[in-house]
Amino acid sequence: MIESITILTGHGKKGGTEGVERIDFKMGDVVSIVGPTGSGKTTLINDIELFADGTTPTGRRVLINGMPPPAEYRDNPACNPIALITQHTTFLSDLPVNEFLRTHARIRSQSPVDGDGLVRQTLDFANQLTGEPIIPTSQMTELSGGQTRALLIADATIICNTPIVLLDEVENAGIHRTRALELLRRYRKIFIFVTHDPRIALLSDYRIIMQQGRITDVLYANDEERECSVKVSQLDDLLTRMRDKLRFGERLTIEELEGVL
């Protein structure tokens, strides 16, 4: 049973120690990583996903339940407790979607699985997030950017179904983001979001601040921010509604802004 992950911090791009010595993520934590582009956010989740042992360029170490993780976490996908949703918007795998998912379901499980059932569930999940449904017999390489991201999220949630999920800028996915957050939060896991999105950042229990490859601080949400969060979510919903209207060729009216602004 996984109860916690720990990062023992290292150093930034130009040396210089990080602002905290260690960060402990507890089961059920929802965490954001924020910072300008190039500040090392993706590198940080890659360190976590690789179970960094001091040999990555940052010198960080990752512990699971306070201990160095066993080698099988990395060598056997069935034992890997981490699912990583990367920023990739294209697949390079020249396989049909259903064959790819069936293979992934087989290797991510320690016992025989109902492959067809899992593939169906995964596609149902993905198709709730994307505008155009994914056809199981399509080639992975043919999927659009949004379909690719939707499938990555669904694969991580249904097929990997791991206690730790890392999400890299899920807001850029061109998918139904609010729906994705809703579906994800039904599961009790450690969620770590790399994000530029105020809504996601404010929904987190705490956020890790990055600058020039270093973790500079960890901020816990306070009461005032929790109040902000409600308002920010309303603003965000408003923008989503307006975006959809524009997308479907409708006109906007000034009344729509009332009550929120």
């Binding site: 996903e49 996908p77 699912a83 990583l84 949703i85 990367t86 990739h88 697949f91 390079l92 795998s93 396989l95 790819f100 293979t103 992934h104 290797i107 991510r108 990555l152 694969d155 991580a156 097929i159 990997c160």
Partner: peptide
Amino acid sequence: RVSQAEREV
């Protein structure tokens, strides 16, 4: 250069 899922497959 590829997703975690592709790497595993």
